[in-house]
Design a protein around this nucleic acid. Structure first.
Lengths: 236, 236
DNA sequence: CGACTCGTTGACTCTCTTCAAGGATAGTGG
DNA sequence: CCACTATCCTTGAAGAGAGTCAACGAGTCG
Protein backbone atom coordinates (compact mmCIF):
# COMPACT_ATOMS: atom_id res chain seq x y z
CA UNK A 1 0.00 0.00 0.00
CA UNK A 2 2.67 2.52 0.90
CA UNK A 3 5.57 2.47 -1.50
CA UNK A 4 8.27 4.31 0.27
CA UNK A 5 11.92 4.53 1.12
CA UNK A 6 12.79 7.30 3.52
CA UNK A 7 15.99 8.66 2.07
CA UNK A 8 16.87 10.87 5.01
CA UNK A 9 17.00 14.59 5.55
CA UNK A 10 18.32 17.17 3.16
CA UNK A 11 18.87 20.88 3.54
CA UNK A 12 15.83 22.54 1.97
CA UNK A 13 18.01 24.86 -0.05
CA UNK A 14 19.05 21.90 -2.18
CA UNK A 15 15.40 21.01 -2.84
CA UNK A 16 14.43 21.33 -6.48
CA UNK A 17 10.96 22.51 -5.54
CA UNK A 18 11.98 25.12 -3.01
CA UNK A 19 11.20 28.14 -5.16
CA UNK A 20 7.75 26.69 -5.95
CA UNK A 21 6.62 25.37 -2.60
CA UNK A 22 5.22 27.23 0.38
CA UNK A 23 8.62 27.15 2.04
CA UNK A 24 9.83 29.69 -0.50
CA UNK A 25 8.95 32.43 1.99
CA UNK A 26 11.47 31.10 4.49
CA UNK A 27 15.20 31.63 4.54
CA UNK A 28 18.23 31.28 6.78
CA UNK A 29 17.38 30.20 10.30
CA UNK A 30 13.70 29.75 9.53
CA UNK A 31 14.49 27.36 6.73
CA UNK A 32 16.83 25.37 8.93
CA UNK A 33 14.04 25.22 11.48
CA UNK A 34 11.74 23.69 8.89
CA UNK A 35 14.41 21.38 7.54
CA UNK A 36 14.78 19.86 10.96
CA UNK A 37 11.22 18.57 10.85
CA UNK A 38 10.70 17.32 7.33
CA UNK A 39 11.65 13.99 5.82
CA UNK A 40 12.16 13.41 2.13
CA UNK A 41 10.88 10.30 0.45
CA UNK A 42 10.67 8.69 -2.96
CA UNK A 43 7.65 6.76 -4.23
CA UNK A 44 7.57 4.56 -7.32
CA UNK A 45 5.05 5.10 -10.12
CA UNK A 46 1.72 3.48 -9.34
CA UNK A 47 2.33 3.23 -5.61
CA UNK A 48 -0.08 4.77 -3.14
CA UNK A 49 1.19 7.40 -0.70
CA UNK A 50 -1.92 7.15 1.47
CA UNK A 51 -5.51 6.07 1.14
CA UNK A 52 -8.73 7.98 1.69
CA UNK A 53 -9.87 7.69 5.31
CA UNK A 54 -6.47 6.65 6.63
CA UNK A 55 -5.39 8.69 9.70
CA UNK A 56 -3.98 11.89 8.25
CA UNK A 57 -0.89 12.64 10.25
CA UNK A 58 1.33 14.30 7.67
CA UNK A 59 1.34 17.08 5.16
CA UNK A 60 3.26 16.58 1.90
CA UNK A 61 4.82 18.61 -0.83
CA UNK A 62 5.67 17.18 -4.22
CA UNK A 63 9.32 17.86 -5.07
CA UNK A 64 9.57 15.83 -8.23
CA UNK A 65 7.35 13.91 -10.64
CA UNK A 66 3.56 13.76 -10.84
CA UNK A 67 0.96 12.57 -8.38
CA UNK A 68 -2.81 12.16 -8.57
CA UNK A 69 -5.48 12.58 -5.91
CA UNK A 70 -8.79 10.77 -6.16
CA UNK A 71 -11.97 9.78 -4.42
CA UNK A 72 -14.00 6.64 -5.00
CA UNK A 73 -17.65 5.64 -4.89
CA UNK A 74 -18.68 2.35 -3.31
CA UNK A 75 -18.85 0.59 -6.67
CA UNK A 76 -15.44 1.77 -7.85
CA UNK A 77 -16.35 4.82 -9.87
CA UNK A 78 -13.47 7.21 -9.46
CA UNK A 79 -13.04 10.96 -9.63
CA UNK A 80 -9.52 12.32 -9.86
CA UNK A 81 -9.51 15.74 -8.21
CA UNK A 82 -6.04 16.81 -9.19
CA UNK A 83 -2.71 16.08 -10.83
CA UNK A 84 0.06 17.51 -8.68
CA UNK A 85 3.52 18.63 -9.76
CA UNK A 86 6.57 19.99 -7.88
CA UNK A 87 5.66 22.66 -5.37
CA UNK A 88 2.11 21.39 -4.84
CA UNK A 89 0.92 20.64 -1.34
CA UNK A 90 -1.34 17.75 -0.32
CA UNK A 91 -2.60 15.88 2.69
CA UNK A 92 -6.03 17.44 3.18
CA UNK A 93 -8.03 15.83 5.96
CA UNK A 94 -11.73 15.40 6.63
CA UNK A 95 -12.10 14.96 10.36
CA UNK A 96 -9.06 12.89 11.23
CA UNK A 97 -8.58 10.91 8.01
CA UNK A 98 -7.23 11.90 4.63
CA UNK A 99 -9.89 13.25 2.33
CA UNK A 100 -8.63 11.39 -0.74
CA UNK A 101 -6.19 8.76 -1.94
CA UNK A 102 -2.81 9.97 -3.21
CA UNK A 103 -1.08 7.84 -5.82
CA UNK A 104 2.12 8.40 -7.77
CA UNK A 105 1.66 8.79 -11.54
CA UNK A 106 5.39 8.81 -12.24
CA UNK A 107 8.13 8.13 -9.75
CA UNK A 108 7.96 11.05 -7.34
CA UNK A 109 9.92 12.84 -4.68
CA UNK A 110 8.05 14.02 -1.59
CA UNK A 111 8.73 16.24 1.37
CA UNK A 112 6.81 15.10 4.43
CA UNK A 113 5.97 17.19 7.48
CA UNK A 114 4.14 15.83 10.52
CA UNK A 115 0.99 17.81 11.13
CA UNK A 116 1.84 18.31 14.80
CA UNK A 117 5.01 20.13 13.80
CA UNK A 118 3.13 22.28 11.37
CA UNK A 119 1.24 24.21 14.01
CA UNK A 120 4.44 24.97 15.89
CA UNK A 121 6.09 26.13 12.70
CA UNK A 122 3.12 28.29 11.76
CA UNK A 123 3.25 29.95 15.16
CA UNK A 124 6.95 30.68 14.78
CA UNK A 125 6.80 31.82 11.16
CA UNK A 126 3.69 33.85 10.36
CA UNK A 127 4.78 34.27 6.74
CA UNK A 128 4.30 30.55 6.38
CA UNK A 129 0.70 30.70 7.48
CA UNK A 130 -0.05 33.45 4.99
CA UNK A 131 1.60 31.46 2.26
CA UNK A 132 -0.40 28.41 3.24
CA UNK A 133 -3.64 30.35 3.16
CA UNK A 134 -2.78 31.70 -0.29
CA UNK A 135 -2.02 28.20 -1.49
CA UNK A 136 -5.32 26.79 -0.24
CA UNK A 137 -7.04 29.78 -1.80
CA UNK A 138 -5.60 28.88 -5.21
CA UNK A 139 -6.73 25.32 -4.74
CA UNK A 140 -10.26 26.49 -4.10
CA UNK A 141 -10.30 28.57 -7.25
CA UNK A 142 -9.04 25.58 -9.22
CA UNK A 143 -11.69 23.38 -7.63
CA UNK A 144 -14.39 25.74 -8.82
CA UNK A 145 -13.00 25.78 -12.34
CA UNK A 146 -13.21 22.02 -12.22
CA UNK A 147 -16.81 22.04 -10.99
CA UNK A 148 -17.75 24.25 -13.91
CA UNK A 149 -15.97 21.85 -16.23
CA UNK A 150 -17.53 18.71 -14.77
CA UNK A 151 -21.02 20.11 -14.49
CA UNK A 152 -21.36 22.12 -17.65
CA UNK A 153 -18.80 21.38 -20.33
CA UNK A 154 -19.02 18.91 -23.20
CA UNK A 155 -16.42 16.21 -23.80
CA UNK A 156 -14.57 18.33 -26.37
CA UNK A 157 -14.61 21.39 -24.15
CA UNK A 158 -13.36 19.29 -21.26
CA UNK A 159 -10.41 17.90 -23.16
CA UNK A 160 -9.51 21.29 -24.64
CA UNK A 161 -9.54 22.78 -21.14
CA UNK A 162 -7.40 19.94 -19.89
CA UNK A 163 -4.77 20.40 -22.57
CA UNK A 164 -4.61 24.14 -21.98
CA UNK A 165 -4.25 23.57 -18.25
CA UNK A 166 -1.13 21.51 -18.82
CA UNK A 167 0.11 23.88 -21.50
CA UNK A 168 -0.09 26.82 -19.11
CA UNK A 169 1.51 24.86 -16.33
CA UNK A 170 4.50 24.17 -18.57
CA UNK A 171 4.71 27.80 -19.60
CA UNK A 172 4.61 29.02 -16.02
CA UNK A 173 7.69 26.95 -15.38
CA UNK A 174 9.43 28.54 -18.32
CA UNK A 175 9.28 25.50 -20.55
CA UNK A 176 8.04 25.70 -24.08
CA UNK A 177 4.69 24.06 -23.94
CA UNK A 178 3.81 23.34 -27.55
CA UNK A 179 4.77 19.70 -27.08
CA UNK A 180 3.17 18.32 -23.95
CA UNK A 181 4.11 15.11 -22.24
CA UNK A 182 1.17 13.55 -20.45
CA UNK A 183 2.52 10.99 -18.01
CA UNK A 184 -0.93 9.76 -17.01
CA UNK A 185 -2.92 7.28 -19.08
CA UNK A 186 -6.22 7.78 -20.85
CA UNK A 187 -8.04 6.22 -17.93
CA UNK A 188 -6.70 8.86 -15.56
CA UNK A 189 -7.63 11.65 -17.94
CA UNK A 190 -11.13 10.17 -18.20
CA UNK A 191 -11.52 10.00 -14.43
CA UNK A 192 -10.31 13.57 -14.13
CA UNK A 193 -12.75 14.91 -16.72
CA UNK A 194 -15.76 12.81 -15.75
CA UNK A 195 -15.70 10.81 -18.99
CA UNK A 196 -14.89 7.25 -20.10
CA UNK A 197 -11.60 6.08 -21.62
CA UNK A 198 -13.33 5.57 -24.94
CA UNK A 199 -14.70 9.08 -25.11
CA UNK A 200 -11.31 10.56 -24.21
CA UNK A 201 -9.64 8.48 -26.90
CA UNK A 202 -12.24 9.39 -29.49
CA UNK A 203 -11.97 13.06 -28.65
CA UNK A 204 -8.19 12.95 -29.01
CA UNK A 205 -8.64 11.40 -32.42
CA UNK A 206 -11.21 14.02 -33.31
CA UNK A 207 -8.81 16.83 -32.32
CA UNK A 208 -6.08 15.24 -34.39
CA UNK A 209 -8.35 14.91 -37.42
CA UNK A 210 -9.41 18.52 -37.02
CA UNK A 211 -5.77 19.63 -36.98
CA UNK A 212 -5.91 20.98 -33.43
CA UNK A 213 -3.20 18.68 -32.14
CA UNK A 214 -0.68 16.09 -33.29
CA UNK A 215 -0.13 12.81 -31.48
CA UNK A 216 3.38 11.42 -32.11
CA UNK A 217 2.49 8.81 -29.51
CA UNK A 218 -0.28 8.46 -26.93
CA UNK A 219 1.70 10.22 -24.21
CA UNK A 220 2.86 13.12 -26.33
CA UNK A 221 0.58 15.89 -27.55
CA UNK A 222 1.69 18.66 -29.83
CA UNK A 223 -0.53 21.72 -29.73
CA UNK A 224 -1.11 22.73 -33.34
CA UNK A 225 -3.96 25.23 -33.06
CA UNK A 226 -3.97 26.84 -29.66
CA UNK A 227 -6.52 29.50 -30.59
CA UNK A 228 -9.06 26.87 -31.55
CA UNK A 229 -8.50 25.00 -28.33
CA UNK A 230 -8.94 28.17 -26.33
CA UNK A 231 -12.16 28.94 -28.13
CA UNK A 232 -13.38 25.45 -27.35
CA UNK A 233 -12.37 25.58 -23.70
CA UNK A 234 -14.79 28.34 -22.81
CA UNK A 235 -18.02 27.54 -24.57
CA UNK A 236 -18.83 27.96 -28.27
CA UNK B 1 -26.29 45.02 -9.70
CA UNK B 2 -25.69 45.56 -6.02
CA UNK B 3 -28.82 45.42 -3.95
CA UNK B 4 -27.82 46.83 -0.63
CA UNK B 5 -28.66 49.06 2.22
CA UNK B 6 -25.90 49.48 4.73
CA UNK B 7 -27.75 49.34 7.99
CA UNK B 8 -24.87 50.45 10.15
CA UNK B 9 -22.70 48.75 12.72
CA UNK B 10 -23.78 46.34 15.37
CA UNK B 11 -21.93 44.75 18.22
CA UNK B 12 -20.94 41.29 17.00
CA UNK B 13 -22.29 39.70 20.15
CA UNK B 14 -25.79 40.48 18.94
CA UNK B 15 -25.14 38.77 15.62
CA UNK B 16 -27.28 35.72 15.05
CA UNK B 17 -24.47 33.96 13.23
CA UNK B 18 -21.74 34.62 15.75
CA UNK B 19 -21.55 31.10 17.09
CA UNK B 20 -21.32 29.72 13.55
CA UNK B 21 -18.93 32.14 11.89
CA UNK B 22 -15.16 32.36 12.10
CA UNK B 23 -15.46 35.17 14.63
CA UNK B 24 -16.69 32.64 17.18
CA UNK B 25 -13.07 32.28 18.37
CA UNK B 26 -12.95 35.91 19.41
CA UNK B 27 -14.30 37.47 22.57
CA UNK B 28 -14.13 40.60 24.63
CA UNK B 29 -11.65 43.15 23.33
CA UNK B 30 -10.82 41.09 20.26
CA UNK B 31 -14.43 41.00 19.24
CA UNK B 32 -14.82 44.73 19.72
CA UNK B 33 -11.71 45.14 17.56
CA UNK B 34 -13.39 43.16 14.79
CA UNK B 35 -16.73 44.91 15.23
CA UNK B 36 -15.04 48.22 14.57
CA UNK B 37 -14.20 47.16 11.05
CA UNK B 38 -17.22 45.30 9.77
CA UNK B 39 -20.40 46.66 8.26
CA UNK B 40 -23.68 44.83 8.21
CA UNK B 41 -25.90 44.85 5.20
CA UNK B 42 -29.15 43.39 3.91
CA UNK B 43 -29.70 42.19 0.35
CA UNK B 44 -33.06 41.37 -1.21
CA UNK B 45 -33.79 37.98 -2.78
CA UNK B 46 -32.52 37.79 -6.34
CA UNK B 47 -30.09 40.69 -6.00
CA UNK B 48 -26.43 40.28 -6.74
CA UNK B 49 -23.88 41.02 -4.03
CA UNK B 50 -20.98 41.08 -6.48
CA UNK B 51 -20.16 39.74 -9.91
CA UNK B 52 -17.38 37.44 -11.04
CA UNK B 53 -14.29 39.42 -12.05
CA UNK B 54 -15.32 42.55 -10.16
CA UNK B 55 -12.49 43.93 -7.96
CA UNK B 56 -12.63 41.83 -4.81
CA UNK B 57 -12.14 44.23 -1.96
CA UNK B 58 -14.27 42.67 0.77
CA UNK B 59 -14.81 39.43 2.58
CA UNK B 60 -18.35 38.51 3.63
CA UNK B 61 -20.12 36.30 6.11
CA UNK B 62 -23.75 35.29 5.75
CA UNK B 63 -25.65 36.14 8.91
CA UNK B 64 -29.15 35.31 7.72
CA UNK B 65 -30.91 33.72 4.74
CA UNK B 66 -29.45 31.85 1.81
CA UNK B 67 -27.03 32.89 -0.89
CA UNK B 68 -25.69 31.15 -3.99
CA UNK B 69 -22.30 31.37 -5.68
CA UNK B 70 -21.91 30.64 -9.37
CA UNK B 71 -19.65 30.80 -12.38
CA UNK B 72 -20.71 31.22 -15.99
CA UNK B 73 -19.50 30.08 -19.38
CA UNK B 74 -19.45 32.51 -22.29
CA UNK B 75 -22.78 31.22 -23.64
CA UNK B 76 -24.60 31.43 -20.34
CA UNK B 77 -24.23 27.91 -19.04
CA UNK B 78 -24.03 28.20 -15.29
CA UNK B 79 -22.53 26.16 -12.49
CA UNK B 80 -23.59 26.95 -8.95
CA UNK B 81 -20.69 26.10 -6.66
CA UNK B 82 -22.43 26.52 -3.36
CA UNK B 83 -25.52 27.47 -1.38
CA UNK B 84 -24.44 29.43 1.68
CA UNK B 85 -26.24 29.77 5.00
CA UNK B 86 -25.52 31.72 8.21
CA UNK B 87 -21.92 31.41 9.33
CA UNK B 88 -20.57 30.75 5.83
CA UNK B 89 -17.78 32.89 4.50
CA UNK B 90 -17.41 34.12 0.93
CA UNK B 91 -15.50 36.56 -1.22
CA UNK B 92 -12.85 34.32 -2.75
CA UNK B 93 -10.65 36.12 -5.27
CA UNK B 94 -8.71 34.98 -8.29
CA UNK B 95 -5.94 37.51 -8.83
CA UNK B 96 -7.66 40.75 -7.90
CA UNK B 97 -11.25 39.99 -8.89
CA UNK B 98 -13.93 37.87 -7.29
CA UNK B 99 -13.81 34.26 -8.43
CA UNK B 100 -17.58 33.94 -8.74
CA UNK B 101 -20.86 35.82 -8.67
CA UNK B 102 -22.73 35.94 -5.37
CA UNK B 103 -26.50 36.27 -5.49
CA UNK B 104 -29.12 36.24 -2.78
CA UNK B 105 -31.56 33.31 -2.91
CA UNK B 106 -33.73 34.65 -0.11
CA UNK B 107 -33.40 38.00 1.54
CA UNK B 108 -30.09 37.85 3.37
CA UNK B 109 -28.07 39.53 6.06
CA UNK B 110 -24.36 39.98 5.49
CA UNK B 111 -21.36 41.01 7.49
CA UNK B 112 -18.76 42.75 5.36
CA UNK B 113 -15.08 43.16 6.15
CA UNK B 114 -12.62 45.06 3.92
CA UNK B 115 -9.81 42.80 2.86
CA UNK B 116 -7.19 45.34 3.89
CA UNK B 117 -8.46 45.19 7.45
CA UNK B 118 -8.41 41.44 7.42
CA UNK B 119 -4.63 41.14 7.32
CA UNK B 120 -4.28 43.53 10.25
CA UNK B 121 -6.83 41.56 12.19
CA UNK B 122 -5.17 38.27 11.39
CA UNK B 123 -1.86 39.63 12.61
CA UNK B 124 -3.43 40.75 15.88
CA UNK B 125 -5.53 37.64 16.46
CA UNK B 126 -3.75 34.43 15.47
CA UNK B 127 -6.74 32.35 16.51
CA UNK B 128 -8.64 34.00 13.69
CA UNK B 129 -6.13 32.89 11.10
CA UNK B 130 -6.33 29.31 12.31
CA UNK B 131 -10.08 29.44 12.21
CA UNK B 132 -9.95 30.85 8.71
CA UNK B 133 -7.62 28.10 7.57
CA UNK B 134 -9.93 25.48 9.04
CA UNK B 135 -12.88 27.06 7.28
CA UNK B 136 -11.16 27.07 3.89
CA UNK B 137 -10.13 23.49 4.55
CA UNK B 138 -13.77 22.48 5.00
CA UNK B 139 -14.65 24.26 1.81
CA UNK B 140 -12.03 22.28 -0.07
CA UNK B 141 -13.37 19.01 1.23
CA UNK B 142 -16.87 20.03 0.17
CA UNK B 143 -15.56 21.04 -3.25
CA UNK B 144 -14.11 17.58 -3.74
CA UNK B 145 -17.35 15.93 -2.73
CA UNK B 146 -19.00 18.05 -5.36
CA UNK B 147 -16.46 17.09 -8.04
CA UNK B 148 -17.15 13.44 -7.33
CA UNK B 149 -20.85 14.16 -7.61
CA UNK B 150 -20.61 16.15 -10.83
CA UNK B 151 -18.17 13.85 -12.53
CA UNK B 152 -19.40 10.44 -11.51
CA UNK B 153 -22.92 10.35 -10.12
CA UNK B 154 -26.18 9.76 -11.96
CA UNK B 155 -29.11 12.17 -11.80
CA UNK B 156 -30.82 10.18 -9.05
CA UNK B 157 -27.65 9.87 -7.01
CA UNK B 158 -27.05 13.59 -7.42
CA UNK B 159 -30.48 14.56 -6.16
CA UNK B 160 -30.33 12.09 -3.27
CA UNK B 161 -26.96 13.53 -2.25
CA UNK B 162 -28.36 17.03 -2.50
CA UNK B 163 -31.33 16.27 -0.27
CA UNK B 164 -29.13 14.61 2.33
CA UNK B 165 -26.76 17.57 2.29
CA UNK B 166 -29.59 19.88 3.27
CA UNK B 167 -31.00 17.38 5.71
CA UNK B 168 -27.68 17.16 7.55
CA UNK B 169 -27.25 20.90 7.50
CA UNK B 170 -30.60 21.27 9.25
CA UNK B 171 -29.71 18.63 11.79
CA UNK B 172 -26.36 20.24 12.56
CA UNK B 173 -28.24 23.34 13.53
CA UNK B 174 -30.45 21.36 15.82
CA UNK B 175 -33.55 21.54 13.68
CA UNK B 176 -35.56 18.51 12.81
CA UNK B 177 -34.76 17.88 9.21
CA UNK B 178 -37.43 15.50 8.03
CA UNK B 179 -39.29 18.33 6.36
CA UNK B 180 -36.91 20.42 4.30
CA UNK B 181 -37.59 23.85 2.92
CA UNK B 182 -35.71 24.48 -0.27
CA UNK B 183 -35.71 28.20 -0.92
CA UNK B 184 -34.03 27.89 -4.30
CA UNK B 185 -35.91 26.99 -7.48
CA UNK B 186 -35.53 23.92 -9.67
CA UNK B 187 -33.28 25.84 -12.01
CA UNK B 188 -30.83 26.55 -9.22
CA UNK B 189 -30.83 22.94 -8.12
CA UNK B 190 -30.17 21.90 -11.72
CA UNK B 191 -27.27 24.29 -12.07
CA UNK B 192 -25.85 23.04 -8.79
CA UNK B 193 -26.05 19.38 -9.78
CA UNK B 194 -25.00 19.73 -13.40
CA UNK B 195 -28.45 18.79 -14.72
CA UNK B 196 -31.37 20.49 -16.47
CA UNK B 197 -34.57 21.74 -14.85
CA UNK B 198 -36.53 18.99 -16.54
CA UNK B 199 -34.31 16.22 -15.24
CA UNK B 200 -34.45 17.63 -11.71
CA UNK B 201 -38.22 17.85 -11.88
CA UNK B 202 -38.56 14.32 -13.26
CA UNK B 203 -36.25 12.93 -10.61
CA UNK B 204 -38.26 14.61 -7.86
CA UNK B 205 -41.38 13.02 -9.28
CA UNK B 206 -39.61 9.68 -9.48
CA UNK B 207 -38.58 9.92 -5.82
CA UNK B 208 -42.13 10.77 -4.85
CA UNK B 209 -43.55 7.84 -6.84
CA UNK B 210 -41.01 5.53 -5.23
CA UNK B 211 -42.06 6.72 -1.78
CA UNK B 212 -38.68 8.22 -0.92
CA UNK B 213 -40.05 11.70 -0.39
CA UNK B 214 -43.30 13.64 -0.22
CA UNK B 215 -43.80 16.98 -1.93
CA UNK B 216 -46.50 19.05 -0.22
CA UNK B 217 -45.44 21.83 -2.57
CA UNK B 218 -42.44 22.39 -4.85
CA UNK B 219 -40.41 24.14 -2.16
CA UNK B 220 -41.10 21.67 0.59
CA UNK B 221 -39.64 18.15 0.69
CA UNK B 222 -40.50 15.62 3.31
CA UNK B 223 -37.94 12.86 3.67
CA UNK B 224 -39.89 9.61 3.84
CA UNK B 225 -37.20 6.98 3.35
CA UNK B 226 -33.88 8.30 4.47
CA UNK B 227 -32.14 4.93 4.29
CA UNK B 228 -33.01 4.54 0.63
CA UNK B 229 -31.75 8.03 -0.13
CA UNK B 230 -28.52 7.33 1.67
CA UNK B 231 -28.05 4.13 -0.27
CA UNK B 232 -28.63 6.04 -3.49
CA UNK B 233 -26.28 8.86 -2.57
CA UNK B 234 -23.18 6.70 -2.56
CA UNK B 235 -23.48 4.42 -5.54
CA UNK B 236 -25.69 1.35 -5.92
C1' DC C 1 -57.75 39.87 -15.84
C1' DG C 2 -53.83 39.06 -18.77
C1' DA C 3 -48.79 38.49 -18.72
C1' DC C 4 -45.28 36.24 -16.53
C1' DT C 5 -42.63 32.82 -14.08
C1' DC C 6 -42.19 28.26 -12.43
C1' DG C 7 -42.84 23.37 -12.16
C1' DT C 8 -44.33 19.34 -14.52
C1' DT C 9 -44.95 16.14 -18.21
C1' DG C 10 -44.53 14.17 -22.95
C1' DA C 11 -42.14 13.09 -27.24
C1' DC C 12 -38.05 13.00 -29.54
C1' DT C 13 -32.96 13.60 -30.08
C1' DC C 14 -28.27 13.15 -29.21
C1' DT C 15 -24.12 12.91 -26.66
C1' DC C 16 -21.79 9.93 -24.20
C1' DT C 17 -21.63 5.19 -22.32
C1' DT C 18 -21.52 0.33 -22.77
C1' DC C 19 -20.11 -3.72 -24.90
C1' DA C 20 -16.97 -5.85 -27.93
C1' DA C 21 -12.91 -6.56 -30.59
C1' DG C 22 -8.45 -5.59 -32.71
C1' DG C 23 -3.66 -3.61 -32.78
C1' DA C 24 0.43 -1.78 -30.66
C1' DT C 25 3.86 -1.92 -27.05
C1' DA C 26 6.37 -3.65 -23.16
C1' DG C 27 7.75 -6.91 -19.97
C1' DT C 28 8.52 -12.05 -18.82
C1' DG C 29 10.34 -16.45 -19.09
C1' DG C 30 11.68 -20.40 -21.58
C1' DC D 1 15.67 -14.44 -29.33
C1' DC D 2 10.98 -15.00 -29.53
C1' DA D 3 6.50 -16.60 -28.28
C1' DC D 4 3.27 -15.30 -24.53
C1' DT D 5 0.80 -12.44 -21.74
C1' DA D 6 -0.75 -8.18 -20.02
C1' DT D 7 -1.89 -3.52 -20.53
C1' DC D 8 -3.14 0.36 -23.02
C1' DC D 9 -5.10 2.79 -26.83
C1' DT D 10 -8.19 2.88 -30.53
C1' DT D 11 -12.30 1.93 -33.17
C1' DG D 12 -16.99 0.13 -34.18
C1' DA D 13 -21.83 -0.82 -33.15
C1' DA D 14 -25.58 -0.56 -30.16
C1' DG D 15 -27.89 1.36 -26.17
C1' DA D 16 -29.29 4.48 -22.50
C1' DG D 17 -29.45 8.45 -19.69
C1' DA D 18 -30.02 12.95 -19.84
C1' DG D 19 -30.90 16.94 -22.96
C1' DT D 20 -33.91 19.57 -26.10
C1' DC D 21 -38.16 21.16 -27.70
C1' DA D 22 -42.83 21.92 -26.73
C1' DA D 23 -47.05 22.35 -24.26
C1' DC D 24 -49.91 22.98 -20.16
C1' DG D 25 -51.54 24.07 -15.36
C1' DA D 26 -50.83 26.70 -11.18
C1' DG D 27 -49.57 30.49 -8.83
C1' DT D 28 -48.16 35.61 -8.78
C1' DC D 29 -48.13 40.38 -9.78
C1' DG D 30 -49.07 44.63 -11.82
Amino acid sequence: MSGDQPVGRLPCTACGAHDLAICQVLEGAALRDLAGHVAVQRVAAGRTVFTEGEPGRDLFTVTEGMLKLYRLLADGRRQITGFLTPGDLFGLVRGSGYAYTAEAVTEIGLCRLPRRRLDELLARHPALEHRLLASVNDELVAAQDQMLLLGRKTAREKLATFLLLFLRREEERGRDGTVLTLPMGRGDIADYLGLTVETVSRTFTQFRSAGLIRLPDPARVEIADRRALEALADGP
